[in-house]
Structures are given as structure tokens and as C-alpha cells.
Amino acid sequence: MSAVLNTQYQFRPMQLDDLDTIMVIEPQIYPYPWTRGNFSDSLSSGYSAWVLMLNDQIIGYSLMMLVLDEAHLLNLSVAKPYQKQGLGRTLLEHMVSIAKSNQMANMFLEVRPSNISAIALYENMGFNEMAVRRGYYPAANGREDAVLMGLAL
């Protein structure tokens, strides 16, 4: 596993009180960030939502919807100063572990085709491209497609 994860890093379930910090991180890493409502709705819906902590500071977070035997990864984010250190992989490994522990058969996600580093991470973790969702994401020139990826658990 990555040498980055040590005793300073911890996962814990996301709470409503975390949203102030998350709402600072989210627009720093996405041109079209989730809203506070997206996060609070996900929490109130009972989605599996986790934060990655370093010394009591949120440095990453992820949310996943579990339905029947399918896990749908909705958001996987690492604060800008902590990117490119293997923490995205650490978060993804955690979410895959949560999905497996909930006896999910498959995990799905959407990713922008322009997000080359995320696609590389997902492929490295065994995800495969399944389809393209046309016009899925907002973009500067209108809409951007999404690549639908899946992983058999």
C-alpha cells in the first residue's frame, strides 16, 4: 500500500458539521463543484460518506450510493495541497472496501474524459470503461461527456 498513509491519516464518516470545510475544498478543485445541498442531501439520504483526516483536518472525502448490490461512487476528492501523493488511491481503496463489506457486486462511477489522472487511477484499480454518457457534465463550452466505468467486486 502507499507509504503516504500512516497513523496521522484517519477515515471517519462524514458529518453535517464537515460541510463548511468541504465547501472550501470543493470549489478549489472543480470548475463545477457540488453544492452544499448536494452534500447535505447525500448525507440525509444515508449515502456512504467518508472524510480523510490528517491531524484533525479534512484533506479528502468521498461519497457513494449503495443500492441493491451496486455501489455508485459519486464524489472522490482530495484537497489541492494533498494531491499527487497517493491519497486519491487511498480514498478509492477505502470506498472499494466499504462496498465489498456491504456485499456489493459491482461499483460504478462517471468521470470526465478530460480528467486523465482520475481515469488512470481508476484503470489502475481495475475499473473498465463501459459506456459514454453524452452531455453529462457542465462545461465552459456547454456540456462534457462522462465516461462510465465499472469494477466487479
Score class of each variant (00 low, 15 high):
P27Y: 03
Y82L: 12
P81D: 12
L68W: 11
L63S: 00
W50P: 00
S62G: 09
H72N: 10
L43T: 00
H94D: 04
Y47T: 01
G86W: 14
N141I: 07
P27F: 00
Y9W: 11
S77D: 12
A152L: 15
M125I: 15
Q57C: 09
W50F: 04
A71N: 07
A105F: 07
Q83C: 08
H94W: 09
L19Q: 02
S101L: 15
Y30T: 04
L54K: 03
G88L: 14
W50Q: 00
P81V: 15
L121H: 01
G150C: 12
N6S: 10
L148K: 09
E70W: 02
A3S: 15
P138V: 08
L5N: 09
K80G: 14
N128P: 02
K84F: 14
L91Y: 05
N141M: 13
M1G: 08
Q57R: 11
R143S: 14
L66Y: 02
M65R: 02
M130S: 08
Y136Q: 08
F11K: 01
S62V: 06
Q15K: 01
E93Q: 14
S97L: 13
D69S: 12
G86M: 15
A3C: 13
V132T: 11
A71C: 08
S114Q: 06
D17Y: 05
D69L: 14
A71G: 12
L151Y: 05
L153I: 13
M104R: 09
T35M: 03
R89Y: 13
A146M: 05
L76H: 06
